[in-house]
Structure formats: C-alpha cells, structure tokens
Nucleic acid binder design. Sequence first.
DNA 1: GTGCGACTTGAAGTCAGCTTCAGGTCAAGG
DNA 2: CCTTGACCTGAAGCTGACTTCAAGTCGCAC
Lengths: 156, 156
Amino acid sequence: MDTRDLLTIGEVAHRSGFPPSALRYYEREGLLHTTRTSGGQRRYERSVLRRLAFIRAARTLGVGLDEVREGLDQLPDGRTPNKADWSRLSRSWRGRLDEQIQALVALRDGLDSCIGCGCLSLQRCRLYNPGDRVADLGPGARLLPPMLRRTPAEGV
Amino acid sequence: MDTRDLLTIGEVAHRSGFPPSALRYYEREGLLHTTRTSGGQRRYERSVLRRLAFIRAARTLGVGLDEVREGLDQLPDGRTPNKADWSRLSRSWRGRLDEQIQALVALRDGLDSCIGCGCLSLQRCRLYNPGDRVADLGPGARLLPPMLRRTPAEGV
DNA sequence: GTGCGACTTGAAGTCAGCTTCAGGTCAAGG
DNA sequence: CCTTGACCTGAAGCTGACTTCAAGTCGCAC
C-alpha cells in the first residue's frame, strides 16, 4: 500500500513479460485492477505480478480469458492470496491437463492404426472420429494449439 | 469419372459433416477442387470425401490449413492416391503428436511441483516458464486448444 | 413450363486476444 | 520552467477459419 512500492505499467511490462498493450487489455477485461495517479497514469501493486504469473500459466495451458477471470474472481477479496489460494487454482488445472493428455494419447493410438491401414475412412478411422467430443465440436474444432504447430524441427 | 457418380455440395456436406460454406472456403483456399455443371454448380468426385477426412483429421490435430494444403499437394497428381500415399501423410503427424504429448506431460510435471509449493513464482515456477519454446512465443502462446476448454465435466 | 429447394457469388461479419495508431498528457531530471 | 520519454485514450486493424447475408440462378419433379 506504500506509494513508493507501486509500479508503472512499463515496469510491470518489463518484469512480467507482457507488453503494456496486453496489460491495458487485461484491465479492460477485468482481470487486473489498478490505481491511478492524479494525472491518470496506472500504478500497479506488486501483487499484480503474481496475478500475471497465474494468467500466463493459464494461457500456456490454453485456458481462455473468461475462465481465467472466473479463477481470479475466486481469490479472497480482502486479504492477499496466499500459497493455498494459488495452489487450489492450479490444482483445478491438473485434471484438465490429464484429460488433454489422455485425449492426445487416444488420438495417437488411433493414428497408429490409421498408419497401418492407410484408410482414413470416414466411418471407421479413429483419427477422423476420435470420439464423440471432438466430432461434436464441428469442423473448426482443434485438439492442438497454434504454438506447437511450427516447431517440428526448427530449433536445430 | 462417371457423371452419375458426382456429388453435389449438399451431398458432400452431409456425408463429410463439413457445412457447404466450409467446402466453398476450402475450394477458394486451394484445398479442394471441383468440376462444374454447365450452369455453374459444383460437382465433387467421390475422392473428395477422403481428402476431407484427411482435412478433418489434420484440423483435429491442430494443423493449420496452410500446412494441410502442403500435405495435400504432395499427393500424386495423376492417379488416385492409394493407401501408401495417405499413410505417408499420416505418419508425418505421428511425430508431431508425440512432441505435443511430451510437452503436455512436461507441463503437468511442472504443475505438480507448483501445486506442492503454491509459488507461481515468475522466476522459478516451471508452469510459468515451462521451457524456452513456450516462453519465446509470447503472451498469446497457447499450449492447448479451444476445443478442450469447455468440457471438464460437461458430458455427465 | 413452372414451382421451389438447392445452388451461386462477393462482401461483410464473427471470435479471441491482442497490437497499432493518432493525437494528446504526465512526470521527473536539469 | 522546459524538455523528453513514458504514458493516456478510443478506434481501428490483425490472424485464421470460417459463417452469414443478399440477391440472384439452376435443375429437377410434376
């Protein structure tokens, strides 16, 4: 609460790795809150860095901002969130992650059988019809993210 | 090549599960080709269904349309693709899938340690900094897809 | 030959998650 | 006091993969 401890948007950007534009966006979207100077410039409490760590972790996992907001809203109102609070939030992702891994493994197994038969049959292929869920989500449904698409052999 | 075997866009839509709008879009994007009636309506060869199966499988894996097109362009020009052709294409995804599973498992392991410590530290947390790749891809980078976001406990 | 559902087109809209821009203001060192 | 770099706002733009719309045409059964 000490004024000298407040951070400018540039400092937060530098420390968190999020560009200022993203910080402003997150604020508009209700994920962060800021105080302002008399002149209207943003000042961030140090705790925003932990919130941003959470946000980055969530985004890495592919959690949408809506859901991130829901998570953040569950943090205690008055007091600073403690380890247990953050831990509880993280734990809820563990299950999600497990599910996602399972889905991919199932897909891989299906792909193996497809490689064997070369079928890609509309009716039979498990890759085409990996399960009810995927199929139900329509043509645009994606099991995997943009970020891993590029790099099959880019690093070396 | 028999005219009676050609399919209308409605039939292809119904059989493939892609809406007509998507089929037209894929054509514009060079993923499909069609013949036309004298009146200008699309007619699809039966083989388009297999192409669409491939496209759906690719999309399920999160492969972008650009890359799908590259894949499809590698199919033989003159003759109808056979099992071996499709099999070769599918095999290239096996490695991608393995990588993605690995990335998720690494993330899960990192998450486990985070659950233990509740830290989410900017410097130390593996979930925050799961590896060079993820970090390098910036704030918008996503490890996981839209489609798996909803359903933690929706089916039952 | 006529009715009507299926089809055609190009243009514009949608969604998420930001980024970029123009035009102006703030804050702090000298 | 003045300069200068950091900051402010709202609006518009971007990417990818489509969808939606309006206005018009086709094709087939009757």
